[in-house]
Amino acid sequence: MLLIYCPYCEEERNELEFRNGGDAHIARPTNIADITDEEFEEYFFIRQNPKGLIYERWRHVHGCGKFFNAARDTVSDRFYLSYKAGEPKPDPATFLNNGNESALNKDKGASK
């Protein structure tokens, strides 16, 4: 059962309060009525389903009700960070391998 940080409630909450909303940073074309079939296919149907880092949308549906985005590792289910809807996509260099392994984890690797 995941623990998800809501950037609006400023607190980690149980997964039960949230609903996943699929990939983040896929903007609806402002001229959607005029785009080609290929552009519509790309926008509406095509997703990467990555193994590893994903930017995804969550809604704190049984909490503050807000949509926000999160960067998560699809293998470990580790959340790197959550940020408010509308904020730019964070550069992975700013959070990968940076505080990723907590000091505690390093200690543990060294023990035994």
């Binding site: 909303g21 903007a27 609806r28 949308r57 809604r59 009700g65 807000k66 949509f67 809807a85 509308g86």
Partner: peptide, 13 residues
């Protein structure tokens, strides 16, 4: 309601 909130919050904020 979820569908409407989705568009309101993320496409037409």
């Amino acid at each position: 309601l979820q569908h409407m909130e989705d568009y309101l919050q993320t496409e037409f904020p």
